[in-house]
Design a protein around this nucleic acid. Structure first.
Lengths: 341, 341
DNA sequence: TTGTAAGCGTTATCAT
DNA sequence: ATGATAACGCTTACAA
């Protein structure tokens, strides 16, 4: 391995100068700089990042912990995180916790040892454990909020409201909600806005695992509950429901309308294409990086370690109702839309 | 920050002993060990991985470079890599090259600086550049082969053959191939087996970007070419084609059969569910890690730097035809299946 | 502008 | 079994 010393020696300068020429180009004489850079290139010098990290105390890496990298939205978050990190000169250490709350805590710790801070997506762990993360190192949450940690989440209540208003304006009056996991923060968020639109009866169809089959499994209760439209916890569930409805000979949206949540790629690939609430996952990833690395931070405050008495920074990203083909007119066609909230 | 020295001092031992107690537990006296471990815990000691890496020359990380982490198969590879790496005590540094061949080379270099070796998925770069990667550090390819680098790929020709034989046994005689990108190694692989099944006429429909819309765009040529069945470069294209066919009133599989490639989650969510060739992406990720880290390697050979004259290790994983609903009987119904190759 | 030298926190060699 | 001590490769005061 060719080290900085080798380059320095070959270029006839001290290691210090060689280091400067490489990392702080404008502080060394032009001639020297060129000479060093050239010899470095010739020798095929490659900086040892471990040594650099040790000397500077900056690993140049951030951690990203996700429950399941195969889930479309986590993949999107990863995309955003990676892109923003690269822009900022950082690398991304990723870890998949396999939806396991135990693993999550352990992994977050392990990752934190090697990075400047970690971005934790939709943590499955309990609130108590969440608090403990703060003193392992800077931590930013995505799709979950906590009193101790900075976070970026979504204006889901607004999204729910928009979906509900949309359905109402189409003439629907009783709407079913096929909920997410009982322990999911995001489900509680969605539920919190379920009654925000007046003139609607909401039928709560309970909690479901956020997978395709849950939608299929819910089809009987949906049909029995008397609703003319259904809001689902996420797109996967919605697609499962639509499929199952169709296989029963029930048409979407003619007989029943369905709305999803997330706007994953699948939402546009089904027939009918899914009306859904779009969450800006990749953007969330980018913002989380900024929060973590303190870009645009008000003052010298470390993410994850807020100054005493100061609330951690929380960002909520806007969502957007994307109307496609899975929603149509309901029983009471002739009703004008509610005024926009 | 609490360092090993702090722990050592507090425990009344030398840093060396403290280090041993932590990393090589059975070489220190039981009593000492307990004392050190306890104080370490009490003080909240967390090892500085950069220092460890510098001292041992092992970063404990591997790199994973993918064209697009949002693509289902790369996500699956990442899942496999992550899981296997964790089992082996390694962490995964990930980088998304955004389908950009330039970025790919640069990123691979950057990543290589911080890790023990990198796994490069479906590289978009040219063959020439590929060769240059070897001396940046150990490198393993996934879904591409090279004369210089170890790789794990798939027995796609077998898969093509199986798909073709399946269609033939259903009574199809002329089959269209909707190909992938002209530069894709995987497309060449698939094409290489296109004529392996006798008694079939193959209509080559040219190259297409591997996205949903390509399938939709290909619908006219498909219908014009006289084929009763279509083999697509991948599932996305296949689904696009099916959708487009259906919107023209053409039924799948009654009027035309469609086969995909990859077996992404989407393949089971469409109506009809897609018949496809399943590629074991996650397994490929795991194997790539093993190749990279030399687990099960014959001798002291570094991946990516094969001993002179010795061919790099290449693994080809088996594939499987998954028959679902998008393929049905063709014009010549009554024909018995070919004997299995 | 450049060089000297002192770390950064661990591990590993060599004595003891 | 444990303790000095010297690396590991780089950065960064501090001097010159």
């Amino acid at each position: 391995m060719v080290t900085l010393r080798d380059v320095a020696r070959a270029a006839g300068v001290s290691p210090a100068t060689a280091s400067r020429a490489l990392g702080n180009p404008d502080v060394v004489a032009a001639g020297t700089r060129e000479r060093v850079l050239r010899t470095a290139r010739e020798l095929g010098y490659r900086a040892n990042q471990a040594a650099r990290a040790l000397a500077t105390g900056d690993s140049g890496m951030i951690g990203l912990v996700v429950p399941d990298i195969e889930s479309p939205f986590f993949a999107s978050i990863a995309k955003g995180v990676d892109a923003r990190a690269r822009e900022l000169g950082s690398s991304v250490l990723i870890a998949d916790t396999q939806e396991d709350a135990e693993l999550e805590a352990e992994v977050a710790g392990r990752v934190q040892e090697r990075v400047e801070g970690v971005i934790l997506c939709s943590p499955r762990m309990g609130t108590a454990d969440l608090g403990g993360l703060a003193d392992l190192g800077p931590t930013v949450l995505i799709n979950r909020e906590s009193s101790d940690l900075p976070s970026v989440s979504f204006e889901t209540p607004t999204g729910v409201r928009a979906a509900l208003a949309h359905l109402r304006s189409l003439g629907h009056r009783v709407i079913a909600y096929v909920g997410g996991p009982h322990s999911a923060w995001a489900d509680a968020e969605r539920r919190s806005a379920l009654h925000a639109v007046p003139g609607l009866r909401i039928v709560d169809l309970g909690h479901h695992r956020p997978v395709h089959d849950s939608g299929a499994a819910a089809v009987d209760t949906v049909m029995a509950c008397g609703a003319s439209a259904v809001l689902c916890y996420n797109d996967l569930v919605a697609v499962g429901l639509v499929r199952s409805l169709q296989s029963r000979g029930i048409r979407v949206p003619e007989d029943i309308s369905v709305v999803g949540f997330d706007d994953i790629a699948l939402a546009t690939l089904t027939a009918p294409a899914l009306t859904t609430v779009r969450l800006p996952w990749a953007a969330a990833g980018r913002v989380a990086v900024d929060l973590l690395l303190g870009a645009g931070e008000d003052a010298g405050e470390d993410a994850g370690e807020p100054a005493a008495g100061r609330a951690p920074r929380r960002v909520r990203l806007g969502v957007e109702l994307v109307v496609r083909e899975s929603t149509g007119v309901g029983p009471e066609r002739a009703v004008p839309p509610l005024p926009e909230a």
